[in-house]
Simulated assay, not measured.
Amino acid sequence: MTSPLARIESHPQEAKRLIGINYEQFSALVVLAEQRHIEKLSEIEKKKIRIIAAGGGRKPQMSAKEGICLCLVYLRQKPTFEILGLLFDVSKTKANDAFNYWVDILRDILPASQIEEASTDSQKHRELQHKLSEYELIVDSAEQATARPSDYQEQKRYYSGKKKMHTMKNQFIVLPGGEDIVDVCVGMLGKTSDINLFRDNRQKFISTQKFLGDKAYIGDDAITTPHKKPKNTEISELQKQENKQLSSRRIFVEHLICRVKIWRVASDRFRLARHRYSQVIMAVCGLVRLRINRLFSLTIAT
């Protein structure tokens, strides 16, 4: 059986279909991930109490490049870990361990949004806030099904009456044209209203920032929303035309959410442990930004 890594190395044009990013992006990602991997090993080594000499013990079954490829295959295709292990010639336990290790590294090196990318530098963050105020940002939310909790009280917390299932909600704020992810809020309860979720995260932007949203955001002065049809009446032709124009500008957030859902782990029912949800979905958002060439660090690496 040909492994996914051997396949994309012999047929680079198939990389995007198999792992979600093209081969050049994958190569740049491997370089940064290996650097972070070496840093983590160094941190572990400093805390370790040695019994055997350095370099001893069992050798790893997978190279860093194989581990990164395994992680991307799971995010993109979402096979069972038993199948994933067969693809990479390891046990399902080793496949699970490798995925959890490398998805944390991807999360470390791939900022999920512009806000997160600038969060470590207060000056850069302020500059970004003022630059964003020149645009009318687009906001929307999406729900993803999760496994039903076994505890009844937990079932009540996670149940979404709108979707008639247990869900998690993610909010995306993007640039006009869907050019990049400005901010993302991940892992909220599915029953949380869109407008309350927006208001809880409003402080990330300056007070003059303007947004576009759908009817779920009616009631917030910062968001331009469509005209809502009054009960037992119709909206005017002018209002219908304005709604159409607004929809044509707002649709790009839907396109970007579709790009997130290219990775099946972000679109199908989430079956990993619930506490892993935010880490995994934020890593996917970082991969989306890499895919659309919006990550400065990866651009430098290529």
Rank of each mutant, 00 (worst) to 15 (best):
R289C: 02
H227I: 00
E45D: 12
E127M: 11
T192S: 11
V31D: 14
K210G: 01
Q279R: 14
R249A: 04
N196R: 13
R289N: 04
Y135I: 03
R58P: 08
A118S: 10
R17P: 05
Q61R: 13
G177F: 00
I83W: 08
F205C: 05
T93W: 06
L106M: 05
R36G: 05
A28Q: 07
A147V: 15
I206Y: 11
Q13L: 11
R259L: 00
Q144R: 12
P149R: 12
T302N: 15
F172S: 03
I181V: 08
T224F: 06
R157A: 10
E134S: 07
I38L: 14
N196C: 07
K47W: 10
Q25H: 04
I206C: 09
Q241P: 03
I83G: 06
E24W: 05
I38P: 06
A222Y: 00
T208Y: 07
G20E: 00
E43L: 11
L70S: 08
T225P: 01
E179D: 08
Q153W: 08
P111M: 05
P60M: 09
S278E: 15
C185W: 11
I262L: 05
K94P: 05
A6S: 15
F88A: 07
D268A: 08
L175A: 04
G85M: 06
I68V: 13
A15F: 05
M188K: 14
A147R: 15
C71W: 09
D180F: 02
K231M: 03
Y101A: 11
K164T: 13
S267K: 08
I251K: 01
E34Q: 14
E34M: 13
W102D: 06
Q61L: 12
L175N: 01
A64C: 14
V184L: 13
Q77L: 06
I206W: 10
I52F: 14
I21V: 04
D214V: 00
I49Y: 14
K162N: 04
P230Y: 03
L18T: 04
Q209V: 00
E154S: 09
I206K: 13
L272T: 11
Y277F: 12
Y74F: 15
H255W: 03
F198N: 00
E24G: 05
T302Q: 12
L287I: 04
D97P: 11
S160L: 13
L256A: 03
E136R: 06
L70D: 10
F99I: 11
R294P: 02
F252Y: 00
R259P: 02
R291D: 01
H37T: 14
S141C: 10
M1W: 09
E143P: 03
F88N: 06
G57A: 10
K48G: 08
E254N: 03
F270Q: 06
G187E: 06
K94R: 11
K163R: 10
I251M: 02
G178S: 02
V265A: 04
D200F: 09
S267R: 10
F81T: 07
R148K: 15
D194Q: 05
